[in-house]
């Protein structure tokens, strides 16, 4: 549990080390908002998020404005005398009930529209079964015989051990790298069938706007369709507490062009099912 070290000294050392690091790396400070992502869906979610955010800011400006005005104007120290008759106003109370109702109805419409789209699983072109386990993921490309496991990469795993002595800032993509990423084609509606082998996990890639729980014994569905020009690596994490190494269960998606994906899938099939292994299957055909 707690390592036996002089506590205040350790704290001071950590603070000094941390602050000097913070002074060098400014990139973290600009991480303030949700990603817009690389799918039409994730951009729509981002738009909804910003709509709600600006709405909340507007409400806060009005409400906090009236509060601040009251606090600064009606001070006893400035000679304010309480108007004790001001205890009820049906008109005002109706207004501040009706206006929020109208605002909520106005926001519920785009929210419901987007939600309905996220649930539209028709016309998918590729299906991958994702199985969460303690602690990693299994990806299976349905009807192609390709499946493999995906875990935290070795460099991060070595660095994250208690007292490893490795400076984690030197590890590339610390805690966000895996040994075998999920490979998918861009410009394709990919359907995910998500389940789990042991406890509940949650598969989350912010850039796709997809987060879905992986529940043992049940299969959840989700989908994404990456923009055709957005090849690259997209990273995420398990989002549901799943035990000791929940924090060390990243997700990496390698989005490739359709051709590259097909080439990769063929190579994987060949590697996972070498021709020698398929010989017995062709034997009955030869006998006929």
């Amino acid at each position: 549990m707690m390592r036996k070290m002089t506590f205040p000294l350790t704290l001071a050392a950590v603070a000094a080390a941390g602050l000097s690091r913070a002074a060098h790396a400014a990139s973290g400070w600009s991480l303030l908002n949700m990603t817009q992502g690389v799918t039409a869906m994730s951009r729509q979610i981002y738009g909804l998020h910003m709509l709600m955010f600006y709405l909340c800011v507007a409400i806060a400006v009005v409400v906090f404005g009236v509060m601040a005005y009251s606090i600064f104007t009606f001070r006893k120290s400035r000679g304010a005398v309480a108007d004790t008759s001001l205890v009820h106003s049906t008109m005002v109370e109706i207004i501040w009930t009706i206006v929020p109702v109208a605002i909520l109805v106005a926001t519920a419409v785009p929210a419901a529209t987007t939600l309905i789209k996220t649930e539209d699983l028709r016309n998918s072109q590729l299906t991958v079964r994702i199985t969460g386990f303690q602690w990693g993921w299994n990806y299976e490309y349905l009807n192609s015989g390709v499946s493999y496991f995906s875990r935290l990469d070795r460099a991060s795993d070595a660095a994250r051990q208690l007292g490893s002595g490795i400076d984690v800032t030197t590890v590339p993509h610390y805690l966000l790298n895996v040994d075998h990423p999920l490979v998918v084609p861009v410009g394709t509606k990919v359907r995910l069938l998500i389940t789990a082998a042991d406890v509940i996990h949650s598969w989350w890639v912010p850039a796709f706007g997809v987060k879905k729980d992986a529940i043992p014994g049940f299969v959840n569905e989700a989908w994404f369709n990456i923009d055709a020009d957005k090849t690259g690596l997209y990273r995420g994490n398990c989002a549901e507490l799943c035990g000791r190494d929940h924090g060390f269960m990243p997700i990496v998606v390698d989005a490739r062009s359709k051709d590259d994906f097909q080439a990769w899938l063929k190579a994987e099939q060949a590697e996972q099912h070498p021709p020698a292994a398929s010989a017995p299957a062709s034997a009955p055909a030869a006998a006929q």
Partner: peptide, 10 residues
């Protein structure tokens, strides 16, 4: 908020 409005605040 309305309770504070036109009150005598300390």
């Amino acid at each position: 908020t309305a309770t504070m409005y036109r009150g005598s605040l300390t």
